[in-house]
Design a protein around this nucleic acid. Structure first.
Lengths: 245, 245
DNA sequence: CGCCTACTTGACTTACTTCAAAAACAGTGG
DNA sequence: CCACTGTTTTTGAAGTAAGTCAAGTAGGCG
């Protein structure tokens, strides 16, 4: 069982070289672990949190609330991500966070993080970089939801999630957990539920991937990538060989 | 004529309190000013810039390049904005920048900024906050382009731009410069050119706003806001009275 | 004046939404 | 173990908003 601190360290090291002293200080941070049910909201739009969240296991979603209780999902986060790092410097949450499947999340007091930034500037830069990564993913989502036809749009989303899951060591063989309902998929990609289902069916029929029982199975990575017009450069990873299959 | 340094200071002070020493050091930064033609590209997708850009006057756009030369515009920037601050910590540009109308842009060497972050941490935090603001705007764009019907989508964009222009003192009476073509509007909002035109026409007919000769005129702010489902909280401004009209 | 670009308008087509209902599935309690 | 409820997924049919195509107008400039 990977510890919360290790998860964070692994993720930051994906893009930033940290000294041993930095790592030691990270390990000294106070983490409060909490477990959440599937679809449990744990930070609400409008909140002014005093803690930052770190995804330890499971998947976490960020979403805007729209009129009539409808949602627009903005991003999904895997273990190691800091899904509300922006809360450190922006008082009011402009979006909410919820667990997608069952998830466990560590909370770190802002106070401690801010002190740590002063003591270990390179840690601050790593977290900054993390928020910039986030922004790059948002940009890609704008393009995805605005400019790509439905099938490519969905393929692209799954490519991104699979690619990131792989970085986070969450891919086993050619499958990874994907505890997302069709409705939520629709609220992510801006399509009606019926279209979501038909598009998933298309992708299945294409033989590139499957989505079953909360699991994503990638059968032909190259082909799926082509369908989704996916190129991982925007994820700005240091080193990563392309997923197999 | 406002100087480049003042423009930056004004913008940062919108959300962060800076000490006099910070301001003095900002004024000491080396700015290289360059003027651009309408639609001139000045940072390309794939570049690895050594300088950060500061919009001094005019409007600057960020865009993804898609197959067939098509573009997806991601964000627009007004005087005072740092449209590629993320380039400080992310080597490769995942998107390009261009002038929208005629624009003048100041370039600041990364080296100097990084040194400055060390000497004046609160300046670093201000720039960080600036990038977080950016991300909030991206998030809203996802929602806008994914979940809102065409008319609301366009109204929302103009609300945001007008609101931000107002903060940057670029609104005179009820009008501000908006040097954007219908094609570009389409490539921003993910709609076909014909639809763009018909939607602008609708908004005109609603009597809430007009777009003529590269200028946006807001006739009924409240009503336009309502049409666009616009609430400025995501812009996280310290203080701002709502625009008049 | 003529050329080019940007905007406008109309008619046609289609992809997606909406609506509706059935089938599969998970959980609950008898 | 099996009926019973509710949720999620699947499928079908109909309606519509937006895309595509095409042509025409207006404005800016050499």
């Amino acid at each position: 069982m990977e510890k919360a601190h290790d998860v964070l360290i692994r993720n930051l090291c994906e893009h930033t070289a940290l000294a041993d002293e930095d790592l030691a200080d990270i390990r000294a941070l106070t983490f409060t672990l909490r477990d959440f049910e599937p679809n449990e909201d744990f930070i609400r739009q409008g909140d002014e949190p005093e803690h930052s969240a770190l995804v330890v296991s499971g998947m976490v979603a960020r979403y805007h609330l729209l009129g009539g209780g409808r949602r627009q999902y903005l991003a999904f986060h895997l273990s190691g991500d800091l899904p509300d790092a922006q809360g450190l410097f922006i008082d009011q949450m402009d979006h909410g966070l919820s667990a997608l499947g069952p998830a466990s999340v560590a909370f770190i007091p802002h106070r401690e993080l801010l002190m740590m930034f002063r003591r270990r500037p390179s840690f601050g830069l790593a977290v900054w970089r993390e928020t910039l990564l986030d922004a790059a993913i948002f940009r890609e989502a704008i393009t995805n939801n605005s400019a790509r036809p439905m099938q490519a749009r969905m393929a692209h989303l799954f490519c991104e999630l699979f690619y990131r899951a792989r970085s986070a060591q969450l891919v086993h063989g050619n499958r990874c957990r994907m505890p997302i309902s069709l409705v939520q998929l629709g609220e992510t990609l801006g399509m009606a539920i019926a279209t979501v289902n038909r598009t998933v069916a298309e992708l299945r029929r294409s033989g590139t991937m499957d989505l079953r029982e909360g699991e994503l199975i990638v059968l032909k990575w190259r082909a799926l990538q082509r369908l989704g017009d996916f190129s991982p450069t925007y994820l700005h990873q240091k080193r990563q060989s392309p997923p197999r299959a």
